[in-house]
Design a binder for these strands. Sequence first.
DNA 1: ACCTTGACGGTTC
DNA 2: GGAACCGCCAAGG
Length: 116
Amino acid sequence: MNIRYPQIWQTVQQIPYGQVATYGQIADLAGLPKRARLVGKALANAPEQGWQGQLIPWYRVVNAQGKLSFTQESEAFERQKQQLQAEQVVIIGNKINLKTFQWQPDLAELLFKLSF
DNA sequence: ACCTTGACGGTTC
DNA sequence: GGAACCGCCAAGG
């Protein structure tokens, strides 16, 4: 059961404070193209105390439309919203403007990934 | 082994 | 913008 997805968790930990990434984006960066759903599953099973003692900022991952992937009634939805707003991420009409807040890995990071 | 269920997404109309 | 359709695939029943 408790299968792990270190590659995915590690990638999520690279998302900077105050920025967000989409499930598909994480999948691509983790070398798992077209497996956005797997990213969701990996985060659902993510340990609180992540990789190398660092926390896994699961709340910085949103869907391709810039919306949170939880039903508004859920507890998780509120937690994620709070966490993001605490990092100055603006949520309007229940969604985030990706043009402004989506993480854009720099060239160095991309080359690092390709070198594998 | 078969079917369903998702923290999803790109395409197409 | 939005809705219908596929593609994807690990888990659980």
